[in-house]
């Protein structure tokens, strides 16, 4: 699997479960050491990255990574302090509506509310590259629009945004570039129009990723 994500653009990575999306994301985030091949983020090997590199990268994990007994603002204030960017927090909290549940511990929040906190945690360090694993999964339609606006404004300030998603709607609305992966390989790479062709993104996706049942 070989692909690159440009700066100031949203790259959406689509693919069936088990295609290798999360594995590649974890290698780029520095959470997993590659068995073979080369991963570079901002020119650095993420597995051996130092604090200066990590300061430039934001990560939203699929499983959230949020401690249950803590309240949202305390966690976000702590992460902002680790990045040295406390000034970013108020506008993120406002944009994501986190104030509405600021007094509730993370374990008692709904999936969608936790999702918003995890997104704020990824963006609070004002990263140059941000990895978002299914950022709008479990959100209601209004919250999804807010999240998409935030992702676009993050791109507009020059950030390289990499999003994994199962949502064609999300990819069509957000992506400057779409990468489709299947069975550990890139099967399509281009703009939504290029990858979708005459039939559209959804039909292309099914045509490119449908494996014979016997080999699944």
């Amino acid at each position: 699997m070989s692909w690159a994500a440009p700066e100031a653009a949203i790259t959406c990575v689509l693919g069936p479960n088990g295609a290798g999306k999360t594995t590649v994301m974890e290698m780029a985030e520095g959470l997993r050491r590659p068995d073979s091949g080369v991963v570079r983020v901002l020119g650095t090997d993420p597995w051996r990255a130092d604090a200066d590199h990590r300061r430039r990268v934001g990560v939203m994990l699929q499983d959230g990574g949020l401690p249950g007994s803590v309240k949202p603002l305390r966690l976000l204030e702590h992460i902002a302090a680790l990045y040295g960017t406390p000034g970013e927090l108020p506008s993120l909290v406002d944009q994501l509506g986190i104030d509405d549940f600021r007094h509730t511990s993370l374990r008692r929040l709904s999936g969608g509310q936790r999702q918003r906190v995890a997104l704020a945690a990824a963006l609070v360090g004002r990263p140059e590259v941000v990895f978002l694993d299914e950022p709008s999964a479990g959100l209601d339609p209004h919250a999804r629009l807010d999240v998409w606006d935030l992702v676009r404004s993050t791109r507009d300030r020059g950030c390289c945004v990499v999003v994994t998603t199962h949502s064609f709607d999300e990819a069509q609305r957000l992506a400057d570039r779409v990468i489709i992966v299947a069975s550990g390989a890139v099967v399509a790479d281009g703009t939504v129009a290029e990858v979708g062709g005459a039939t559209g993104l959804e039909d292309s996706y099914f045509a490119l990723t449908r494996a014979p049942k016997a080999s699944r």
Partner: peptide
């Protein structure tokens, strides 16, 4: 053990704090 289960170690490990921190 529960921080590890809920991914807290992974999340904080990729911040500037890092795993050793």
């Amino acid at each position: 053990g529960f921080d590890r289960r809920y991914g807290v170690l992974r999340l904080l490990g990729v911040t500037p704090l890092g795993r050793s921190g």
